[in-house]
Simulated assay, not measured.
Amino acid sequence: MDWFYSFPHMNDGSLSALRNAIDDGFRGFTRSYGDAIEGLFQPLQAFLIWAERLLTGTPWPVVLLVIAGLAWLASRSWPIVLGAVATLLIIGWFDMWTDTMRTISMIFVCTVIAVVIGLPLGILMARSDRLSRIITPVLDVMQTMPSFVYLIPVVMLLGIGRVPGVIAVVIYALPPIIRLTNLGIRQVDRETLEAARAFGSSPWQLLKKVQLPLALPTIMAGMNQTIMMALAMVVIASMIGVQGLGQPVLRAINNQYFTLGLFNGLAIVGIAIMFDRVTQAYGRRLQKHQEAMHD
Protein backbone atom coordinates (compact mmCIF):
# COMPACT_ATOMS: atom_id res chain seq x y z
CA MET A 1 0.00 0.00 0.00
CA ASP A 2 3.02 2.31 -0.07
CA TRP A 3 1.96 3.56 -3.49
CA PHE A 4 -1.28 4.82 -1.94
CA TYR A 5 0.48 7.06 0.59
CA SER A 6 3.47 8.11 -1.51
CA PHE A 7 2.74 10.31 -4.52
CA PRO A 8 4.25 8.87 -7.75
CA HIS A 9 7.34 10.85 -8.73
CA MET A 10 10.39 10.77 -10.91
CA ASN A 11 13.15 8.58 -9.48
CA ASP A 12 16.10 10.33 -7.86
CA GLY A 13 18.52 9.46 -10.64
CA SER A 14 16.32 10.87 -13.42
CA LEU A 15 15.46 13.97 -11.40
CA SER A 16 19.12 14.62 -10.65
CA ALA A 17 20.02 14.14 -14.32
CA LEU A 18 17.31 16.57 -15.41
CA ARG A 19 18.45 19.21 -12.90
CA ASN A 20 22.08 18.80 -13.90
CA ALA A 21 21.21 19.10 -17.59
CA ILE A 22 19.27 22.33 -17.02
CA ASP A 23 22.00 23.79 -14.77
CA ASP A 24 24.77 22.84 -17.20
CA GLY A 25 22.81 24.29 -20.11
CA PHE A 26 22.29 27.60 -18.31
CA ARG A 27 25.96 27.77 -17.27
CA GLY A 28 27.01 27.09 -20.86
CA PHE A 29 24.65 29.80 -22.10
CA THR A 30 26.08 32.22 -19.53
CA ARG A 31 29.68 31.48 -20.56
CA SER A 32 28.87 31.83 -24.26
CA TYR A 33 26.60 34.87 -24.24
CA GLY A 34 27.07 36.51 -20.83
CA ASP A 35 29.48 39.18 -22.10
CA ALA A 36 27.24 40.04 -25.06
CA ILE A 37 24.16 40.31 -22.83
CA GLU A 38 26.11 42.45 -20.36
CA GLY A 39 27.04 44.79 -23.20
CA LEU A 40 23.36 45.25 -24.06
CA PHE A 41 22.76 46.70 -20.61
CA GLN A 42 25.53 49.32 -20.75
CA PRO A 43 22.99 52.13 -21.50
CA LEU A 44 21.06 51.08 -18.38
CA GLN A 45 24.28 51.17 -16.36
CA ALA A 46 24.99 54.69 -17.66
CA PHE A 47 21.41 55.81 -16.83
CA LEU A 48 21.74 54.44 -13.29
CA ILE A 49 25.09 56.15 -12.70
CA TRP A 50 23.76 59.45 -14.08
CA ALA A 51 20.65 59.37 -11.87
CA GLU A 52 22.66 58.50 -8.76
CA ARG A 53 25.29 61.19 -9.38
CA LEU A 54 22.56 63.74 -10.06
CA LEU A 55 20.84 63.17 -6.73
CA THR A 56 23.93 62.58 -4.57
CA GLY A 57 25.89 65.43 -6.18
CA THR A 58 23.15 68.07 -5.97
CA PRO A 59 23.16 70.18 -2.77
CA TRP A 60 20.51 69.01 -0.32
CA PRO A 61 18.54 72.31 -0.24
CA VAL A 62 18.12 72.13 -4.03
CA VAL A 63 16.93 68.51 -3.86
CA LEU A 64 14.53 69.43 -1.07
CA LEU A 65 13.07 72.34 -3.05
CA VAL A 66 12.67 70.23 -6.20
CA ILE A 67 10.92 67.40 -4.35
CA ALA A 68 8.69 69.91 -2.54
CA GLY A 69 7.84 71.54 -5.88
CA LEU A 70 7.01 68.19 -7.50
CA ALA A 71 4.88 67.20 -4.49
CA TRP A 72 2.95 70.48 -4.74
CA LEU A 73 2.42 70.16 -8.51
CA ALA A 74 1.13 66.62 -8.08
CA SER A 75 -1.00 67.01 -4.96
CA ARG A 76 -1.82 70.73 -4.54
CA SER A 77 -1.83 69.89 -0.83
CA TRP A 78 0.30 71.73 1.71
CA PRO A 79 0.09 68.94 4.33
CA ILE A 80 1.52 66.46 1.81
CA VAL A 81 4.28 68.88 0.79
CA LEU A 82 5.20 69.63 4.41
CA GLY A 83 5.10 65.91 5.23
CA ALA A 84 7.51 65.14 2.37
CA VAL A 85 9.88 67.94 3.42
CA ALA A 86 9.77 66.89 7.08
CA THR A 87 10.46 63.26 6.15
CA LEU A 88 13.54 64.19 4.13
CA LEU A 89 14.80 66.60 6.82
CA ILE A 90 14.55 63.89 9.49
CA ILE A 91 16.32 61.40 7.19
CA GLY A 92 19.13 63.88 6.60
CA TRP A 93 19.41 64.73 10.31
CA PHE A 94 19.96 61.03 11.07
CA ASP A 95 22.80 60.95 8.49
CA MET A 96 20.98 58.80 5.92
CA TRP A 97 20.77 61.40 3.16
CA THR A 98 23.28 59.86 0.69
CA ASP A 99 21.82 56.35 0.98
CA THR A 100 18.32 57.81 0.60
CA MET A 101 19.30 59.63 -2.59
CA ARG A 102 20.79 56.39 -3.96
CA THR A 103 17.56 54.56 -3.15
CA ILE A 104 15.39 57.28 -4.73
CA SER A 105 17.58 57.27 -7.86
CA MET A 106 17.14 53.49 -8.16
CA ILE A 107 13.35 53.76 -7.68
CA PHE A 108 13.24 56.53 -10.30
CA VAL A 109 15.15 54.40 -12.85
CA CYS A 110 13.04 51.30 -12.10
CA THR A 111 9.79 53.27 -12.42
CA VAL A 112 10.85 54.80 -15.74
CA ILE A 113 11.75 51.37 -17.14
CA ALA A 114 8.53 49.83 -15.80
CA VAL A 115 6.42 52.57 -17.42
CA VAL A 116 8.29 52.32 -20.74
CA ILE A 117 7.71 48.55 -20.82
CA GLY A 118 4.38 48.29 -19.00
CA LEU A 119 2.37 51.05 -20.66
CA PRO A 120 2.67 49.69 -24.24
CA LEU A 121 2.08 46.13 -23.03
CA GLY A 122 -1.05 47.20 -21.13
CA ILE A 123 -2.33 49.03 -24.21
CA LEU A 124 -1.71 45.99 -26.41
CA MET A 125 -3.48 43.73 -23.89
CA ALA A 126 -6.48 46.07 -23.88
CA ARG A 127 -6.63 45.89 -27.68
CA SER A 128 -6.23 42.10 -27.97
CA ASP A 129 -8.04 39.52 -25.83
CA ARG A 130 -5.75 36.80 -27.18
CA LEU A 131 -2.62 38.67 -26.11
CA SER A 132 -4.24 39.36 -22.75
CA ARG A 133 -4.84 35.63 -22.22
CA ILE A 134 -1.18 34.93 -23.05
CA ILE A 135 0.38 37.67 -20.89
CA THR A 136 -1.89 37.35 -17.82
CA PRO A 137 -0.43 33.97 -16.67
CA VAL A 138 3.07 35.41 -17.11
CA LEU A 139 2.11 38.35 -14.86
CA ASP A 140 0.68 35.88 -12.33
CA VAL A 141 4.03 34.08 -12.20
CA MET A 142 5.95 37.35 -11.91
CA GLN A 143 3.80 38.46 -8.95
CA THR A 144 3.76 35.15 -7.06
CA MET A 145 7.35 33.98 -7.63
CA PRO A 146 9.47 34.60 -4.50
CA SER A 147 11.58 37.68 -5.12
CA PHE A 148 14.81 35.87 -4.23
CA VAL A 149 14.32 33.57 -7.22
CA TYR A 150 14.70 36.53 -9.63
CA LEU A 151 18.22 37.10 -8.36
CA ILE A 152 19.57 33.67 -9.40
CA PRO A 153 19.46 33.88 -13.23
CA VAL A 154 20.16 37.63 -13.24
CA VAL A 155 23.31 37.25 -11.11
CA MET A 156 24.49 34.26 -13.16
CA LEU A 157 24.17 36.31 -16.36
CA LEU A 158 25.32 39.74 -15.18
CA GLY A 159 27.16 39.21 -11.91
CA ILE A 160 26.91 41.44 -8.85
CA GLY A 161 26.10 45.12 -9.17
CA ARG A 162 23.50 47.80 -9.85
CA VAL A 163 22.20 46.52 -13.20
CA PRO A 164 21.20 42.99 -12.08
CA GLY A 165 19.56 44.49 -9.00
CA VAL A 166 17.52 46.92 -11.08
CA ILE A 167 16.48 44.17 -13.50
CA ALA A 168 15.26 42.01 -10.60
CA VAL A 169 13.35 44.97 -9.12
CA VAL A 170 11.74 45.82 -12.48
CA ILE A 171 10.60 42.21 -13.00
CA TYR A 172 9.02 42.20 -9.54
CA ALA A 173 7.43 45.66 -9.84
CA LEU A 174 6.24 45.52 -13.46
CA PRO A 175 2.89 43.63 -13.24
CA PRO A 176 0.77 46.39 -11.58
CA ILE A 177 1.41 49.01 -14.26
CA ILE A 178 0.61 46.46 -17.00
CA ARG A 179 -2.55 45.16 -15.33
CA LEU A 180 -3.97 48.57 -14.43
CA THR A 181 -3.18 50.10 -17.82
CA ASN A 182 -5.10 47.23 -19.41
CA LEU A 183 -7.94 47.61 -16.90
CA GLY A 184 -8.13 51.40 -17.24
CA ILE A 185 -8.38 51.34 -21.03
CA ARG A 186 -10.96 48.54 -20.98
CA GLN A 187 -13.13 50.51 -18.54
CA VAL A 188 -13.40 53.57 -20.79
CA ASP A 189 -17.07 54.22 -21.49
CA ARG A 190 -18.20 52.61 -24.77
CA GLU A 191 -20.52 55.49 -25.61
CA THR A 192 -17.58 57.90 -25.37
CA LEU A 193 -15.59 55.72 -27.74
CA GLU A 194 -18.48 55.48 -30.18
CA ALA A 195 -18.91 59.26 -30.15
CA ALA A 196 -15.19 59.73 -30.86
CA ARG A 197 -15.37 57.23 -33.76
CA ALA A 198 -18.44 59.00 -35.11
CA PHE A 199 -16.39 62.19 -35.35
CA GLY A 200 -13.85 60.34 -37.47
CA SER A 201 -11.10 59.67 -34.90
CA SER A 202 -8.40 57.29 -36.05
CA PRO A 203 -7.29 54.46 -33.68
CA TRP A 204 -4.22 56.50 -32.70
CA GLN A 205 -6.32 59.62 -32.01
CA LEU A 206 -8.80 57.50 -30.06
CA LEU A 207 -5.98 56.15 -27.89
CA LYS A 208 -4.17 59.46 -27.43
CA LYS A 209 -7.12 61.80 -26.91
CA VAL A 210 -9.79 59.57 -25.36
CA GLN A 211 -8.63 56.27 -23.91
CA LEU A 212 -5.36 57.28 -22.24
CA PRO A 213 -6.70 60.51 -20.68
CA LEU A 214 -9.76 58.71 -19.29
CA ALA A 215 -7.66 55.76 -18.09
CA LEU A 216 -4.97 57.97 -16.53
CA PRO A 217 -6.27 57.79 -12.91
CA THR A 218 -6.19 53.99 -13.08
CA ILE A 219 -2.76 54.04 -14.73
CA MET A 220 -1.51 56.30 -11.92
CA ALA A 221 -2.78 53.75 -9.40
CA GLY A 222 -0.71 51.16 -11.24
CA MET A 223 2.35 53.41 -11.09
CA ASN A 224 1.76 53.88 -7.36
CA GLN A 225 1.77 50.12 -6.83
CA THR A 226 4.86 49.72 -9.01
CA ILE A 227 6.76 52.25 -6.85
CA MET A 228 5.63 50.50 -3.65
CA MET A 229 6.74 47.09 -4.93
CA ALA A 230 10.08 48.51 -6.07
CA LEU A 231 10.65 49.93 -2.59
CA ALA A 232 9.76 46.54 -1.10
CA MET A 233 12.69 45.07 -3.05
CA VAL A 234 15.27 47.57 -1.74
CA VAL A 235 16.69 45.29 0.97
CA ILE A 236 16.66 42.18 -1.22
CA ALA A 237 18.38 44.01 -4.09
CA SER A 238 21.10 45.13 -1.66
CA MET A 239 22.15 41.48 -1.41
CA ILE A 240 23.59 41.72 -4.92
CA GLY A 241 25.31 45.06 -4.59
CA VAL A 242 22.60 47.71 -5.05
CA GLN A 243 23.60 50.65 -2.88
CA GLY A 244 21.15 52.61 -0.78
CA LEU A 245 19.13 52.17 2.39
CA GLY A 246 18.93 48.41 1.89
CA GLN A 247 22.64 47.81 2.54
CA PRO A 248 22.65 49.20 6.12
CA VAL A 249 19.54 47.11 6.85
CA LEU A 250 21.29 44.00 5.49
CA ARG A 251 24.41 44.84 7.54
CA ALA A 252 22.24 45.28 10.62
CA ILE A 253 20.66 41.85 10.07
CA ASN A 254 24.05 40.18 9.66
CA ASN A 255 25.62 41.89 12.69
CA GLN A 256 22.58 42.36 14.93
CA TYR A 257 22.74 46.17 14.88
CA PHE A 258 19.22 46.95 16.04
CA THR A 259 19.24 50.74 15.76
CA LEU A 260 20.98 50.75 12.37
CA GLY A 261 18.33 48.45 10.92
CA LEU A 262 15.48 50.29 12.65
CA PHE A 263 16.48 53.77 11.47
CA ASN A 264 17.16 52.74 7.88
CA GLY A 265 14.01 50.63 7.81
CA LEU A 266 11.98 53.61 9.01
CA ALA A 267 13.63 55.74 6.31
CA ILE A 268 12.41 53.27 3.66
CA VAL A 269 8.92 53.43 5.21
CA GLY A 270 9.04 57.24 5.18
CA ILE A 271 9.98 57.35 1.50
CA ALA A 272 7.26 54.82 0.69
CA ILE A 273 4.62 56.90 2.50
CA MET A 274 5.84 60.07 0.77
CA PHE A 275 5.61 58.53 -2.70
CA ASP A 276 2.29 56.88 -1.88
CA ARG A 277 0.63 60.10 -0.68
CA VAL A 278 1.90 62.17 -3.60
CA THR A 279 0.90 59.67 -6.32
CA GLN A 280 -2.48 58.97 -4.71
CA ALA A 281 -3.22 62.68 -4.46
CA TYR A 282 -2.29 63.13 -8.10
CA GLY A 283 -4.55 60.23 -9.07
CA ARG A 284 -7.46 61.77 -7.14
CA ARG A 285 -6.90 65.13 -8.86
CA LEU A 286 -6.99 63.40 -12.25
CA GLN A 287 -10.17 61.57 -11.26
CA LYS A 288 -11.90 64.82 -10.23
CA HIS A 289 -10.76 66.46 -13.46
CA GLN A 290 -12.24 63.64 -15.55
CA GLU A 291 -15.52 63.76 -13.60
CA ALA A 292 -15.72 67.54 -14.09
CA MET A 293 -15.20 67.12 -17.83
CA HIS A 294 -17.99 64.51 -18.00
CA ASP A 295 -20.36 66.80 -16.09
Rank of each mutant, 00 (worst) to 15 (best):
G165R: 01
T259R: 09
R179G: 04
V63E: 09
R76N: 15
L216H: 11
T30F: 00
G34L: 09
D295F: 04
S132V: 01
P8L: 04
K208C: 07
F275A: 03
E191F: 08
V155C: 01
G246Y: 04
D95I: 08
Q243M: 14
V109W: 06
I236C: 04
I117G: 05
L183P: 00
T56H: 12
I171T: 10
W93P: 01
A46S: 10
G261A: 11
F29V: 12
W72G: 03
A195R: 14
M96D: 13
G28T: 13
V242A: 01
R76E: 14
T144I: 02
I240M: 08
I271R: 12
I67S: 11
D276K: 03
G159V: 04
W3L: 13
P175W: 00
R27Y: 10
V166G: 02
S147N: 14
L180H: 13
G92F: 11
W60V: 06
V170R: 03
R130L: 10
N224T: 13
V249C: 06
P146K: 07
R102H: 11
D295Y: 09
I236R: 02
L54W: 14
M229P: 02
Y5I: 04
I177E: 03
I22S: 08
S147Q: 10
P164Q: 03
S132D: 12
L88P: 11
G222E: 13
L124A: 09
G39N: 15
V138D: 02
T87D: 06
S14R: 15
A86D: 08
M10I: 14
L151H: 02
G200N: 11
V115A: 12
F26T: 11
L206W: 07
I123K: 00
K209E: 11
L158T: 03
D95K: 12
V109A: 07
I22V: 15
L158A: 01
T259W: 15
D23H: 10
F41E: 06
T226L: 01
F108K: 00
T111A: 00
V138F: 02
M228Y: 01
P59C: 02
F94H: 13
E191G: 08
L151G: 03
T226Y: 06
I134N: 04
V210M: 08
V166L: 09
I104A: 05
L174F: 07
C110M: 10
R127L: 05
M233D: 05
S75K: 00
I253C: 10
M239I: 12
V163A: 03
L15C: 05
V85G: 06
I80M: 13
G270P: 00
G92W: 13
L73F: 06
L286D: 12
L139S: 06
Q243I: 09
V188G: 04
E38A: 15
T259V: 13
A237T: 08
M223S: 12
S75F: 05
I22G: 07
L206C: 07
P120M: 06
W50V: 07
R53S: 14
V116A: 15
